[in-house]
Design a protein around this nucleic acid. Structure first.
Lengths: 343, 343
DNA sequence: CCGCTTACCGTGAACGTTCCCAGAATCAGT
DNA sequence: ACTGATTCTGGGAACGTTCACGGTAAGCGG
């Protein structure tokens, strides 16, 4: 290293005070101290006061491991990020979700632990960590299907709530998801209500819940439609552009397109404008997510919003109920059409 | 809620298998199983195999609380974000730091827990959590001074390593910081070596280590300079713009400016160009951080880079040594001049 | 064949809590 | 004064590990 300064040495305290030390200092028994610690029921004012004073004096802090060992509760839950997380952190919606969960859990005096697991090795260690009793439950944001952590945690009986439908485990894992299908339906019906007749769609990857459900909603609103009106994307801007180009060449007379994500929609808009189409006059464009980009497109994007505060609240509620021994459930939170200028 | 589907009920396993169950299943004693669990020294091949088989059969996972209770180790450390964290998550450098720490800790089979504490209430709960023995140590990214968690953790004897000089606790807390002063010095000396003679600076807030140290490096390189060459910013783009305007009016003949962050430098460049100055011909501009924006300015920004992978590695090394009982140290990692077109 | 070393194994104690139960003390009602 | 209820307290047991210690058996040199 370049330079090392060694400040004055710090000695670690010899031994942490235990509940017995407090009891001795307060002149009461272990049991009484424990009662004070846990709500103070059945303890006289005098004892209560003596114990509190003794705790201050000794600088006592409860040993969570000892407590957890007997209560079988750790008062903490994990928030698992098992994707290569770089993209997620940049997503402001993700921040809202995370923050919402932290707050909701805080109300129950539960700490949220964010754990990362990108590599396989990480995931293994994390599996051990989680099933070792360190946490009471886990919140999982699983964008892709086939996350190997899900079956592992499930088989250990660890309460797990997924954000977004956990493909392949819909029946076993609890989850909360936005009503993708209904959102898509709303959007397409809105497009129709404004007189559009050739409504195309760019879907997400069909191995993601959003890909599947949003397409289903599109179909639901339209009945069976011309297959030439459907193109598949991959949630990236470039993917949206490519899909839009395919649609334009397949179906030049389309007058609206419902795109399964805002980012792809931004790509689609670029391509449309390059092709000389005016938005929304010639082609109406609808997105999904109501993310940042929806406001930066030209014109601003009509899109579908999902309420992240709501989602986080429901996730926590569900997790706590699982921890309490209830059986898993799926919660679908409503989505809402946000009309701007693009449609 | 909008819709609830209840999949088939999942029953929680009656009881987790303990080390005794494994011992019974393997026909050996508790002690032997424990030995297998901890490296397998002094255990015969036959016993080893029997135990491993029994563990698979019973689905045994060690109870971390029980283990931690006796070993006084939790094999996990906290990564504490106590600022309103929204800004941090968006910083790609932060991701590098986080990832680096995770990896470095993984080598020692230690799990990293990311904990958020924005509100005061959060911070309290977090304090309890951390000092309750849940973690063996903490990594702290403290951009501002006066973080109340530092003294608390310190007084509890919890090993803490800060990223960036923890103002007010430099002597007591271990930390690793980039060599801000030297980086600034390098930059200013480089500017002088290209013939610049009226070198101004825009500083960061003077209650942050970066603000103080980078200014010190500037002074070090220049000897005492004209106070009219110094303006203070707040690390935001707007702050950089304002400071640049002040400098231009105070000192219209400046021919270079060292800006204490890339973002402020981007603001400064805008103002300079609006004032009709060519960069670098009329005014050379140097930044600090080598962040994303350094590449997007016009022209690309000459700046100072700090090695985040290096910083994370040193932080972990330092923390582990603290946990092993060593006394705290400060590590300063070198900074490096990155020359691009703006100077 | 004896004793010493080595490899392996079992057991009791400890870690610091909570929980439960039994008992003491107080009090009110008869 | 006796009973019964109520409030408070103390202490044993348990949670699931690790660790130090002691013991047994086998191997080996003399």
């Amino acid at each position: 290293m370049h330079n090392v300064v060694v400040p004055e040495p710090r000695r670690r305290p010899a031994r942490r005070p235990t509940i017995n030390d407090v009891a001795a200092a307060a002149g009461v028994s272990r049991g009484t101290v424990s009662r004070v610690l846990n709500g103070g029921r059945d303890v006289s004012d005098a004892a209560q006061e003596a114990v509190e004073k003794a705790m201050r004096k000794t600088g006592y802090v409860v040993n969570q491991h000892a407590r957890s060992l007997v209560t079988q509760r750790s008062q903490s839950v994990a928030f698992i990020l098992s994707e290569p997380q770089d993209r997620l952190f940049e997503d402001p919606n993700f921040n809202v979700l995370l923050h919402g969960c932290t707050q909701a859990l805080a109300k129950h005096d539960i700490t949220l632990l964010l754990t990362l697991a990108s590599s396989l090795e990480d995931r293994k260690r994390l599996g051990r960590y989680l099933t070792g009793g360190h946490v009471d439950g886990a919140l999982l944001v699983s964008t892709h299907s086939g996350n190997p952590l899900i079956p592992e945690l499930l088989s250990r009986g660890l309460p797990v709530v997924a954000c977004g439908k956990p493909l392949g485990y819909e029946r076993q894992a609890a989850y909360v998801a936005a009503d993708d299908r209904d959102g898509a339906r709303q959007m397409v019906e809105y497009l129709r209500s404004t007189g559009r007749r050739r409504i195309a769609t760019i879907t997400g990857p069909l191995d993601t819940p959003g890909g599947i459900e949003r397409l289903a909603g599109y179909r639901e609103a339209l009945g069976d439609s011309d297959p030439a009106l459907i193109a598949h994307g991959d949630y990236t801007r470039a993917g949206g552009e490519a899909a839009m180009r395919r649609l334009l060449s397949q179906t030049p007379d389309l007058d609206a397109v419902f795109v399964a994500s805002d980012l792809m929609a931004a790509g689609a808009i670029t391509v449309l404008q390059l092709a000389g189409k005016r938005i929304p006059e010639d082609v109406a464009v609808g997105g999904f997510d109501d993310s940042q980009v929806a406001l930066t497109t030209q014109p601003p994007l009509t899109t579908v919003r999902q309420s992240y505060p709501r989602i986080s609240a429901e996730m926590v509620r569900l997790l706590l109920s699982l921890i309490d021994g209830e059986s898993p459930a799926a919660v679908i939170v409503p989505t809402e059409l946000v009309v701007r200028e693009s449609a």
